Computed example of a mutant assay.
Amino acid sequence: MGTWSGEPFGNDTAADFAWELDGQKRWSVVRGALRTALRSKDPLDMDTACVAIAAAEVVAHGLGRPTQSDVYTESVEEFVCRARRPSGRLVTAAERAVAAASAPGSELADGWMDDHEQEWRAANARLLVALRGE
Score class of each variant (00 low, 15 high):
K41W: 02
W27T: 04
L128K: 12
A122C: 09
E57H: 05
R85T: 15
E107R: 08
S102G: 08
V71R: 05
F79D: 12
G62R: 03
A103R: 13
L128E: 08
A52V: 05
A94W: 07
E78T: 09
R65M: 01
Q118D: 15
M113P: 00
S75N: 08
S5R: 04
L131P: 00
L38R: 13
R65T: 06
L90R: 04
D70R: 03
V58Q: 10
A93T: 09
D70S: 06
H61I: 02
A100D: 06
E20P: 00
D12L: 13
E20S: 09
R89N: 13
W27F: 05
G88M: 15
P43E: 05
L90H: 05
P8F: 04
Q68N: 04
A14I: 02
R26H: 02
V71F: 15
A99Y: 01
M113C: 02
S40D: 13
A103V: 02
F79H: 04
E117Y: 14
T48E: 11
G64F: 06
G105F: 03
A97D: 06
L131C: 09
F9A: 02
A37P: 11
G111D: 13
A52P: 12
A60K: 01
S28R: 01
P43S: 08
R121N: 01
V30F: 13
C81P: 00
R82I: 12
S75E: 14
P104S: 07
D16F: 04
H116F: 11
G23A: 13
G133K: 03
D16A: 10
R132L: 09
H116I: 12
